[in-house]
Design a protein around this nucleic acid. Structure first.
Lengths: 225, 225
DNA sequence: CTCGGAGTTCAGCCTCTTCTCAGGGACCTT
DNA sequence: AAGGTCCCTGAGAAGAGGCTGAACTCCGAG
């Protein structure tokens, strides 16, 4: 197993690499986004760990560029603790997983193993459940042959639901993922946006793909509605 | 049954061990992560209770190290009250189950019994007895192929019963687990909710999985009805 | 500057859940 | 068989949770 680490903070980067090698994982460190894109094209990596804050190109850009270049290596993004929308945006730009800083090293290794196990088929650019699909590249949803425009918030929310079909996701988790952990507004915002989504992806098609789990949150029907 | 408890807080650790021994479970206490890894390699333990906050190695690390060393003993992690992400990470690093602090002792014993019974098979997120299953992820029950929606109260109650199939559980314990120790309403509430559950999981299937133990409480038929 | 889209807040309405209560039934003891 | 205790269940009140339309802010495009 061989991993590319793109991280400009030298201390963090070297400690990640040292730790990975202690686990028997080969690790290569690069310190900026441009080099990251260059090295990322090397198909011999089993996974890429990518910080968001980078000199040159930021992590989102690196990720998007790699995907645009046809690289399918699994990418795990390191997001800032208080970075609102970072995580949804990470998935949005083609990352396969993310880890919020500060993160536990053990968890990093576990996630990398999981990603590498899934291999390159993990990333398709499209999240699909039944006839409902979310295309990260065109930033739109599709129900069958019908394209659906979504706002960024709607997109982020739907991405979280589609990533775990069948799983009931608590409202507070949805807020954390889409609006950020430091969101202090009205939690009712989730219901409002679920309402928007239903009017776009369910009502016009007489479907009920987003199920309410009263007292908990929402669940994506694994059959897509 | 023999359990290893890894907990640095001496009061909590000894009270867990004393409580377990009162239940006829042999318990051994160690106070730091490094000793935890050493003792955890002893295959004679039927389960390991592991706190996350530990001196030396934290709980995630202990868990990962044990798994890396090929130890398959079921591990139950104790997670902080407000650490929602801890639980996902616990499962990620190889734990079989988790319990959020502060926890009820009865639940701890129940979970340990469930884990030990399952043995090294691992945590699936699903409690299953006969053809009756409780899926914690989708937050639903299933009888055969039929999905059953449950309210949060019904879900919690059924979870307790399913965790200890065949064991008669006292009504007062059910109240404590589901409604909390400070519940001061009508104890008849248990009967009412047992009734709700029966109407959802038994009557439509002509089963009798929840048995009344007169004068005591209720028991889950280990055959699932 | 104006317009429109996106994001958010809020209040009212409606539905479902929770809980209480009381009557009747089941079971046990004497 | 009588009486007592325990359990079951239907009805309904109270309240929490969820949905939605309306209005407001913010911001960028034209």
């Amino acid at each position: 197993m061989k991993v590319l680490v793109v991280e400009d903070e030298v201390n963090l980067g070297t400690s990640i690499c040292d730790g990975l090698e202690a686990e028997g994982i080969e690790a290569e460190l690069v310190g900026d986004g441009i080099t990251g894109v260059e090295r990322g094209n090397d198909a011999s990596f089993d996974a890429i760990v990518l910080d968001i804050m980078l000199p040159g190109l930021n992590g989102f850009r690196v990720c998007a560029d790699l995907r645009a270049a046809g690289v399918t290596t699994p990418i795990l993004m390191l997001t800032a603790k208080d970075g609102e929308l970072d995580e949804a945006e990470a998935l949005d730009t083609g990352a396969d997983d993310f880890l919020r800083k500060p993160f536990s090293f053990v968890v990093l290794v576990a996630r990398l193993n999981a990603l590498a196990r899934r291999g390159a088929r993990g990333y398709s650019g499209i999240l699909e459940v039944g006839d409902l699909a979310l295309d990260r590249e065109s930033h739109r949803a599709r129900r069958g042959d019908v394209s659906i425009d979504l706002t960024p918030r709607e997109f982020a929310l739907l991405a979280i639901l589609l990533a775990q079909p069948g799983k009931a996701i608590r409202k507070v988790d949805l807020v954390n993922e889409v609006w950020g952990a430091d969101f202090e507004g009205d939690p009712n915002i989730v219901e409002v946006y679920i309402g928007y989504l239903r009017r776009k992806i369910d009502l016009p098609f007489s479907r009920r793909s987003i199920e309410t789990v009263r007292g908990i949150g929402y669940r994506m029907d694994p059959a897509g509605g």
